[in-house]
Design a protein around this nucleic acid. Structure first.
Lengths: 340, 340
DNA sequence: CTGTTAGCGCATTCAG
DNA sequence: CTGAATGCGCTAACAG
């Protein structure tokens, strides 16, 4: 292993001079700089960041904690965060909590232990609070992405769940739907809670009925099980059955349509479906689902930016909150006008 | 920040005793162990792995370098690797090279610098060799996944490209196809090279023509552009046009079908399509593409296992090579028998 | 512009 | 079973 002492010896300078060259710190005469740089190159020196962070408390590593690396929504965030990180001279480390607070906690410990400069987090749920407070205890800044947590004062990049939900639902209402169901994620996740509230508010605003038989929870995973939910809905008396379903995530939306079809329910003729989150089109056919596409890449990109500003202390003291709008894509799964 | 000295002072023992408790090393009396453990718990001590790795040269961090984090094939590998890593007491760090040797090189430097115990690599291409040799120089073991590199002696977990390609093609041949095209990835990637060779061999074996107008390269990315390729194929005289296309990756397959449809070519009636790699079914419809599903999760899982064995020196000296079969899923995109 | 000294938090080595 | 001394590779703080 090559160290700065090897370089120093070969260049006839002190280790400190080498350190200065590497970090572009202090004033170095162009001549010695050249000489040192040449030897660094020659020996293929790579700084030992363990040693470096032991003294300087800086690693230039950002971390991103997501809840499901298999979800394209999160891989997009990762790409955005990585691009910004790279651009600013940081590297990105990815962790996958699987929506599991315990696993998240283990990863947080690892990140503290390994010494990350800051963490971009989509927390598993409200209980993640204690994990994040641990970061604070170790003075590691973090930025919440996608999901906020009540009473946690920190930078955040979030989706405008209220407006987006309302837009999706009003699209359904315009099509003549009056009985609209929701299949949501767990209510201990902020996005689920907000979407639930917005669902309730929008229906109420439009003087539409809210029926507890139309309100269901699943989870946000790829295999989010909705078959039972759909079965229950279809067992309702005809006049109580919803004519439209609002799915609060991509996977829930996909699985809802699949479950409906499995029960010979026509989408959108019998029941219309809209959902949150865009899905990559891996099919040869046109995309079918009406979606609200969140700017996931920007969640990552802007989140990384806030984080770096926080790390480098170029940010104002008060936490910042960025709320981004989503884009509604109206497609076949919801375009069947019941008024006609 | 809590250090072992804080613990030691509070427990009235030396720092060394604390270190021993933490690492389960040496012999400690149950009483002092209990006492120390209680204080560790109480103070919420988290070891500083920078300091630790400075002396012990061990971080318990595995790294996974993939070429495209947006490709479900690689996220599956990540999940497999993560599961095995966790199970064995390691954490997994993810890096995304974007099929770019330079970016890969930067990440390798970071990994060396940060001190990873071992790396699971799907190399960008044949030029990745120098990046991997750098790892060797720093005595960091690595395992190749999915893509091997010539003359690099190391553990590998690979796909049986020869058999799988043959099976896919023989399926086409059984359907009566005699003019089969290939749209491949860059030939400086091992998998592309092997699939090309297997394509050639299989056609020759079955005494079918090989026409250079049927051999095309694209790349393995999500937006792999094949429209020009398809256009060229369709401009061939009718009797020279291929009746089937073998796409060597998921994205190439999807884009091939899309491009064909855009040109009003019916799949599979006019041209059949088969491809490598399974694709998650994000659509409400039945999967359409005939695919060879690689055991990607196992690539990661077994790769991590080999790597950990190498790190912990429980592996035999000689490099091991695991070759895994793929599963063929015959679907509509290729089921139209031309013999009838 | 350059060098010296000291110490980051921990584990190895050797001594009890 | 436990402790003291030492050094990993680097940089902050000071001195020249």
């Amino acid at each position: 292993m090559v160290t700065i002492y090897d370089i120093a010896k070969k260049a006839n300078v002190s280790a400190m001079t080498v350190s200065r060259v590497i970090n572009n710190a202090g004033n170095i005469s162009p001549k010695t700089r050249k000489k040192v740089e040449a030897i660094i190159e020659e020996l293929g020196y790579i700084p030992n960041s363990s040693a470096r962070s032991l003294t300087s408390k800086k690693t230039n590593i950002l971390s991103l904690m997501v809840t499901d690396i298999a979800n394209p929504f999160f891989t997009n965030i990762a790409r955005g965060a990585e691009d910004k990180a790279m651009q600013m001279g940081y590297q990105l480390m990815l962790c996958n909590s699987d929506e599991n607070v315990e696993k998240e906690s283990k990863y947080i410990d690892m990140l503290i232990s390994a010494g990350t400069d800051g963490v971009l987090v989509a927390p598993a749920n409200d209980l993640s609070k204690k994990n994040l407070q641990k970061l604070t205890k170790y003075r590691i800044p973090y930025v919440l992405v996608d999901r906020y947590i009540k009473e946690l004062e920190c930078d955040q990049v979030l989706s405008d769940n209220e407006t987006t939900t309302r837009k999706l639902l009003e699209h359904l209402i315009r099509q003549g739907h009056e009985r609209i169901a929701i299949i949501n994620g767990p209510l201990d996740i902020a996005t689920a809670k907000e979407r639930h509230q917005a669902y309730y508010d929008t229906l109420t605003l439009h003087e539409l009925p809210v029926n507890e038989n139309w309100i269901h929870q699943s989870h946000f995973f790829r295999d989010s099980d909705v078959t039972n939910t759909i079965k229950k809905m279809l067992e309702l008396p005809k006049e109580e059955q919803p004519t439209a379903i609002f799915a609060t995530s991509n996977f829930i939306g996909i699985n809802t349509v699949k479950a409906l079809k499995a029960n010979n329910v026509k989408v959108p003729e019998d029941i219309a479906v809209v959902c949150y989150d865009e899905v990559p089109n891996y099919s040869e056919t046109e995309p079918f689902l009406t979606t609200a596409e969140q700017p996931s890449y920007n969640f990552g990109y802007l989140g990384a930016q806030l984080l770096i500003e926080r790390i480098e202390k170029t940010a104002p003291e008060t936490p910042r909150k960025i709320v981004l709008p989503s884009e509604i894509h109206i497609r076949k799964s919801s375009t069947f006008n019941r008024k006609k």
